[in-house]
Design a protein around this nucleic acid. Sequence first.
DNA 1: ACATTTATTTTTACGGTGTAAAGATTGTAG
DNA 2: CTACAATCTTTACACCGTAAAAATAAATGT
Lengths: 208, 208
Amino acid sequence: MPVNEAAGGKSAYHHGDLRKALLDAAEEELAEKGVEGFTLRGCAKRAGVSHAAPAHHFRDANALLSELASEGFTRFSAAMRSRQASVANDPRAALVGAGLGYIDFARANPALFRLMFSSYRTNFDREPLHSSANVAFGILVESITSTIGRNPMDDLAGMQHVAAAWSMAHGLADLLLSNKMPFLAAVAEQDVEAFLAGIITRAVPSDF
Amino acid sequence: MPVNEAAGGKSAYHHGDLRKALLDAAEEELAEKGVEGFTLRGCAKRAGVSHAAPAHHFRDANALLSELASEGFTRFSAAMRSRQASVANDPRAALVGAGLGYIDFARANPALFRLMFSSYRTNFDREPLHSSANVAFGILVESITSTIGRNPMDDLAGMQHVAAAWSMAHGLADLLLSNKMPFLAAVAEQDVEAFLAGIITRAVPSDF
DNA sequence: ACATTTATTTTTACGGTGTAAAGATTGTAG
DNA sequence: CTACAATCTTTACACCGTAAAAATAAATGT
């Protein structure tokens, strides 16, 4: 019997590691064609297998996309943490850093970001997407915890901070991605970061 | 020659007014199946015509959806104005009202809202979508103009207000629609409006 | 009034999609 | 070396959007 334990230790049969190859192909396909243009057959072609081959590794196209979204959330969390690391040891600055990382990721991986928040082709009730998305959410909660000095999920005022910070970063990312704010072209390249940071900062006022 | 002038004065041939019937059918189809599940053939069936009939009234499926999105933006603007009308004569309150109207509409018409901001099936370069979307944007700009006492599009600080207010309302609407904030179930029904208003208010600080 | 033209709709057809089922192929176990 | 099980391919089916041709009905010109 082949080595086929759950945690990705799939051994090589005909292709080598088709599961991994399909995930790579899916990310290419997604980046090139977008969430709406994504096709499972295109993935299979990229991986050099027949169009029905993926069926044995993923229940259906959405299961493949859900797993890709999960990888996305892991990298998404890394993007936020990376921004936070490059910032002074100030809770508010760390919160804004998370927001900038949020937007960094969205701009660097537009189609993947869309997939992660489309919630039509993805299933957040199954692993590993459920966990990886929760980790990302945890970064937000943690940042707000440091800022206000308590767990924000314990009361309404705290949840309001969470909702505000998340909405601001997410709305900004989503509108930037769909080119709804062409007037921002007026912002010089070196000023963009401060411009965005100034917006994110508003979400959690200093007099909470 | 039939009465077929541009402005919707299409007269009745076989069906009566298939163009209008298709738009109505499309809204039903959209509401029931969502943006991703929408099919042109399903629309045609709802309107009681063959699957190829829409071709003579709309270039393709995206053209039909673009026109539907345009109607959506018109109602969207009305939702914002309606909220503004039911508010004291205070510029800041009017701005928050627009944001609440934004969210009202999104929650009342989730699939249509998604379509309007998906920008994949819709073409904002063509009329009437171009204009109706601009009218909606104008409400935002106008609200901020009243609040800060000048045209916000004239300088970076003003554009920052626009981007912040829009991002906050939009992010909130988008995350609510995709059920990303289940913890908000803890907010009692009669407190929801104040909760959301409190968040929107943060986007444009009082000391600008 | 009647033939002609034009607008509208249906029928037919084609390439593309996801996925289910059956057949072929290949690594592993006994 | 045989049998089995995992993997992949082939085939098939029901959808989809849309183009082209055929059919139908309204409007027009004489």
